[in-house]
């Protein structure tokens, strides 16, 4: 297993950047990321049980994941596909709510699949905030204003 997680220095504390290499061709990985019958087999946190995943895989199409958690709660994650470039890149918005009506803010996820020596290096960037036009901007996100806030919080 090859795992690497490091802070994204351009976006302190506001962006999660994860990289992992999978021993599989990227076309297969891309398929597992985009077809619901495969997605439900791996999607979720440690507390996630059954997942009901539906998607409309086209730019502007929506996906929803309804997750039954081990504590009896239900979480719903939904978003809109911004960019679909098989088998290289997926960009989608990501927001979640629970049954208590809590809604997290809209965030932005960019997944890239890069072929390396017959394996696939997957890089996932999850930005804490997506602007209303995040889809149009393809991950421009908050830019400089957010960096400054992240730096401020980092000094506390």
């Amino acid at each position: 297993m090859d795992i690497a997680a490091q802070p994204d220095l351009d976006h302190p504390q506001t962006t999660l950047l994860l990289t992992r290499t999978f021993a599989a061709p990227r076309a297969l990985l891309f398929k597992l990321w985009t077809q619901p019958e495969h997605i439900v087999r791996w999607w979720g946190c440690a507390e996630t049980g059954e997942v009901d995943f539906t998607n409309d895989l086209r730019v502007g199409g929506e996906f929803t994941a309804v997750m039954q958690l081990s504590n009896g709660h239900t979480h719903r994650i939904s978003g809109v596909y911004c960019k679909i470039e098989a088998p290289e890149r997926l960009v989608f918005t990501w927001s979640w709510e629970n049954t208590d009506g809590f809604q997290g803010g809209e965030t932005l996820v960019t997944v890239t699949f890069e072929e390396k020596d017959g394996q696939t290096e997957l890089t996932l960037r999850h930005e804490s905030f997506a602007t209303e036009d995040a889809c149009a901007a393809h991950g421009e996100g908050w830019g400089a204003s957010l960096d400054r806030l992240g730096e401020f919080v980092a000094t506390l």
Binding site: I3, A5, Q13, L18, F22, W42, C45, L122
Partner: peptide, 18 residues
């Protein structure tokens, strides 16, 4: 950000096994 990390790392583990 830490919550996202928990979510995705666990998903990656399962994806690897799958």
């Amino acid at each position: 950000v830490e919550e996202y990390r928990r979510f995705w790392e666990h998903s990656f583990d399962r994806l690897e096994a799958y």
